[in-house]
Amino acid sequence: MITKMNHVSVFVLNQDSAYDFYVNKLGFKVHTDASMEPGMRWLTVCPPEQPDLQISLMSIEEGMMFKGEAANQMRELVKNGTFGFGIFECNDLNATYEEMKAKGVVFKKPPTKEFYGYEALFSDDSGNWFSLGEKQEA
């Protein structure tokens, strides 16, 4: 039986810039930042209240994972906002939206009442987008 998820990957165009976005703009905590050779950096962050879920900010580099032209294609797809990686939760969507906007986060959609709930959509510095909603009581 699967009990939980502990790692998830988000592909980013630049890890330094992603660090700034996720840590300084979103307020995430750095879990592990292990630099090895150039192009080999393991960088994971966690949402402030979810220390056991590591989001790995994976650089798109040509290598074993992306062979040949695949790295460039992947970079283009990310840049063009192809990937929606998940749903984040906050206590108060309006306040979080105002704060993130003040920090320069780009929203594709401001807080909007939808038939499924109250949500906003924002993009990270690479182009990956996320939904942001309020905590739902079970």
């Binding site: 592990t32 292990a34 090895m36 080999m40 790995s56 074993m64």
Partner: peptide, 19 residues
Amino acid sequence: IKAQPLRFIPGCFASQKGW
């Protein structure tokens, strides 16, 4: 982390990336 970075990286990711 500096001395043994691979200890801090899940094996599946390290293998997939060829690290």
